[in-house]
Simulated scan of single mutants.
Amino acid sequence: MVKKPGPDKDNAQLRLLKSVADGIAALFFPSVEVVIHDVEAGTVAYIANNLSKRKPGDDAGLDDLEQDPLAPVTGPYEKLNWDGKKMRSVTIATGDGESPGYLLCINLSTAVFEEARNALEMFLSVTRLQPQPEQLFRDDWQENINTFLHEWIRRENTSLSALTREQKKKVVQSLHKEGAFRAKNAADYIAGVLSLGRTTVYKYLRECKE
């Protein structure tokens, strides 16, 4: 595309796009840059939260736009920033048949998210775990209750917070059959986990025995 100086395009559309760019950049600061390209002039018209070290008036790199026109929304696609860090981008075209308009490019730096993911993967890596000491936890009744409870919840395809009162009653009675209440303070522990009163737990146990 042959570059030519565009007319004064600091019009209502550009002012609106600048406000949109500033708003997006402010909301997602410091990870998002928003660039407005003037398609007719082939230059960068505006940058909010500059991450790419470009400046207004720089060549926008739109030489092939006439041969390969953009869709109204393109992306997200990945590109590399000047510092070697990855960015994910979306380009929004505002042109129509009468005016080439502008391109609004939203560039998200994913470096901070990748660093967080890598840190989490390292922290949660199972390769660093050692087997649970058998002698130390052989009689860990709380863990045994937790294991049984969450296996029961998984089979019922529900969650701890979604258990109905009838389901809690069934859990208590199932735990009783497994011998969970032989441990001292087990009733208090189970009542706390299931958000039940201690008297309610004993009521369910009496009904089970009857």
Rank of each mutant, 00 (worst) to 15 (best):
A180G: 04
D38V: 10
F113R: 09
V39I: 10
T164I: 06
E121A: 15
Y202T: 07
D22H: 09
P76S: 01
L70P: 05
R117K: 12
V126P: 09
D58V: 03
G97E: 11
K203P: 08
N144R: 14
A180C: 08
L194R: 05
S195F: 13
R15H: 08
M1T: 10
I24H: 02
F137K: 08
E207P: 03
T74A: 13
S89R: 14
S109N: 15
V73A: 01
N50K: 09
V34A: 07
K53M: 12
E115C: 12
A183Y: 00
D140F: 02
K55P: 02
T199R: 14
N81R: 15
I153F: 06
G101Q: 01
E143Y: 12
R198G: 11
Q130N: 10
P56L: 04
S19T: 09
Y189T: 03
R154Y: 14
G42R: 05
R15P: 03
V112K: 15
T43I: 06
S89H: 10
V34G: 03
K203C: 12
R128A: 13
Q132S: 13
S174D: 12
G42H: 06
L17C: 05
G101C: 01
T200W: 01
G95H: 03
E156P: 06
A12N: 12
N50M: 01
T164N: 02
L196E: 02
V90N: 03
L51D: 00
I36D: 01
E166Q: 14
R88Y: 15
L196G: 02
L70F: 09
Q67A: 15
V35A: 03
K85L: 08
E207I: 07
Q130C: 09
M122Y: 14
V90C: 07
L14S: 06
S89W: 09
Y77W: 04
R117E: 11
S89D: 08
Q130A: 09
A41R: 07
T91K: 04
V171Q: 04
F113D: 10
G97N: 13
L205P: 06
G197H: 14
D38M: 07
D96E: 09
Y189C: 04
L194T: 04
F113Y: 14
P30F: 00
V34H: 05
E40D: 12
A21K: 01
P72N: 09
S161G: 08
L70M: 11
S159H: 07
